[in-house]
Design a protein around this nucleic acid. Structure first.
Length: 497
RNA sequence: GGCCCAUUCGUCUAGCGGUCUAGGACGCCACCCUCUCACGGUGGAGAUCGGGGGUUCGAAUCCCCCAUGGGUCACCA
């Protein structure tokens, strides 16, 4: 450990990432997981994954798998979870029903909860009335006054939910690590449902029971949970559990401000992988949006773990800066060892190159091309457009206007001649290597009395078919002597009319 | 509407009472490097710290009010 707080002085934390399997995790959501993971690793504690599937109707098939795949892609490893189990399993809430029922029984027995027989229709009507009378919405305790025995008897046969009995008076103070104490009048809290009529607990109950059972030290979650934190605190208290440390993180905004949308970065984690971003870059980026460490911007996974302090997380909603992510990704691409990058590029090209190109791709060629484009790409998705001509059996000669610009404007004949001479020089070179090739072609430019750059533009167009390419001579060396000569001659003939 | 949260360059942030005429990064502009594009280098524009009151010898940093933005008021999480 170099800098930062030495983990030995901090108690190991047990933190969890507790998504509900209702879709693919998005950046805002995953960023909370990143911070939680970092905190666990920083304190040499544990990071666990728990699936919160207490709403059967919203469950989406495959979601759990993609959630885990997202974490895996980012390199966030978990010590306990639905797939690997652990000492506090199972890690899926729908498999822990007995635990919640036991908690409800205790609450019922202690008078901290009561069955409620109101129907959804009645509750809707209540809300309607409250709205019309401009009164605050919320359950008003109709079933709370039913005598205990009567309630128990009815509960045996009638459909019902169980509500937590919030104290009528007093205030509840709950502490958020980042914001300090948050105080709420109990009178503004209604008797919320803790057990649904289908026998499943609500989030409120389930997370309190689980976080206690799993010995979670820090409850990290989005700040949309702040308003219900006091209810959770009350539940922890009523069950005789020690309250965990609450950490609420702010949301991520879309570029224009406002909520993140599909258009603006709210893609699932796995889509970033498809878009050619590197896991370390995304991790770094996510971590520094909403949190900062002095003047540091580019930080490795190890540095991040070393230096990350959960209490320094920022409070204001951060805007998702796509351009900065792209830049950062470029930084990581440039830092990647060539062999490793070539591997990534090869895999990318296998899917991006047109189907006519024979597979598997020539690895040796990929490895030759990689150093030429390493500092020219920000994402793997940009590779194809930059290098596809290396694999194209034919490179069509660009239109005449492409050649006849600037110095060559209205000089088709001169351009054609320059190309023909370039072909000769190229053809005569032996061995065919970049350095001597450049030397010879520069000499040719002198001879033709044109600027080297102007000659090279012509050659680039003829050989690669485009005005922008990786460095010319290295490119030509890879393309090969014969092919280069052919393309130069073809372009020359084309311009000659 | 009630309750709650937030507010430093366009953006992400540093800052935790004096070292701030506010630092870094992305983006932007200029120049340099240069065969194109990039990379890299140098320099520049860019926030009187949302506004107004306090507290203090001294405030971006503490307190209050206001404004703005956001969240939340389900048998969803």
């Amino acid at each position: 450990m170099s800098e930062g707080t030495t983990p030995s002085t901090t108690k190991p934390a047990r933190v969890r990432y507790a998504p509900s399997p209702t879709g693919d995790p998005h950046v805002g959501n995953i960023r909370t997981a990143v911070w939680a993971w970092l905190h666990a690793r920083h304190t040499s504690g544990q990071f666990l994954v728990r699936i919160e599937d207490t709403d059967q109707s919203r469950k989406q098939p495959g979601s759990e798998e993609r959630i885990l795949a997202s974490l895996e892609w980012l390199g966030l490893d978990w010590d306990e979870g639905p797939d690997i189990g652990g000492p506090f399993g199972p890690y899926v809430q729908s498999q822990r029903l007995p635990l919640y029922h036991a908690a409800v029984e205790r609450l019922l027995a202690d008078g901290n909860a009561y069955p409620c027989f109101c129907t959804p229709e009645e509750l809707d009507a209540l809300r309607e009335r409250q709205r019309a009378e401009k009164r605050p919405p919320g359950y008003e305790g109709k079933c709370r006054v039913i005598p205990r025995e009567e309630a128990a008897a009815r509960a045996a046969s009638e459909p019902h939910v169980v509500r937590f009995a919030v104290p009528d008076e007093g205030t509840t103070v709950a502490v958020d690590l980042l914001r300090g104490p948050i105080e709420v009048e109990n009178s503004t809290l209604d008797d919320f449902v803790i057990l649904k009529s289908d026998g499943y607990p609500t989030y409120h109950l389930a997370h309190v029971v689980d976080d206690h059972e799993m010995e979670i030290t820090h409850v990290t979650r989005g700040d949309e949970w702040i308003p219900s934190m006091p209810r959770h605190a009350l539940l922890f208290d009523a069950l005789g559990y020690e309250r965990p440390i609450f950490v609420h993180t702010s949301i991520i905004l879309a570029p224009g401000g406002g909520k993140l949308s599909k258009r603006h970065g709210a893609k699932s984690m796995l889509e970033y992988a498809e878009d050619g971003y590197l896991p370390d870059a995304v991790l770094n980026f996510l971590c520094i949006t909403g949190w900062g460490y002095g003047d540091e911007t580019v930080m490795s996974r190890e540095q991040l773990i070393d230096v990350f302090e959960i209490e320094n997380i920022g409070l204001n909603p951060a805007t998702f800066d796509m351009e900065k992510l792209a830049w950062l990704n470029g930084v990581y691409i440039r830092q990647t060892p060539i062999a490793e990058l070539a591997e990534l590029i090869a895999r990318r090209l296998e899917v991006d190159l047109p189907p006519e190109v024979p597979r598997p791709l020539d690895r040796a060629l990929v490895e030759e091309v990689t150093p030429l484009i390493q500092e020219r790409i920000q994402t793997l998705a940009e590779v194809k457009d930059l290098v596809d001509f290396f694999w194209a059996p034919e490179v069509p000669v660009p239109a005449a206007e492409e050649f006849l610009q600037k110095k060559w404007k209205d000089r088709a004949e001169a351009a054609s001649f320059a190309l023909a001479r370039s072909a000769d020089v190229t053809d005569a070179l032996d061995p065919f290597e970049a350095a001597p090739l450049e030397e010879q072609l520069r000499a040719l430019a002198d001879e033709l009395e044109v600027k080297a750059g102007d000659l090279f533009t012509l050659i680039r167009l003829a050989v690669t078919g485009r005005r922008v390419s990786p460095p010319l001579f290295e490119t030509m060396e890879i393309v090969g002597q014969g092919v280069c000569v052919d393309r130069l001659r073809a372009a020359s003939a084309y311009l000659a009319g």
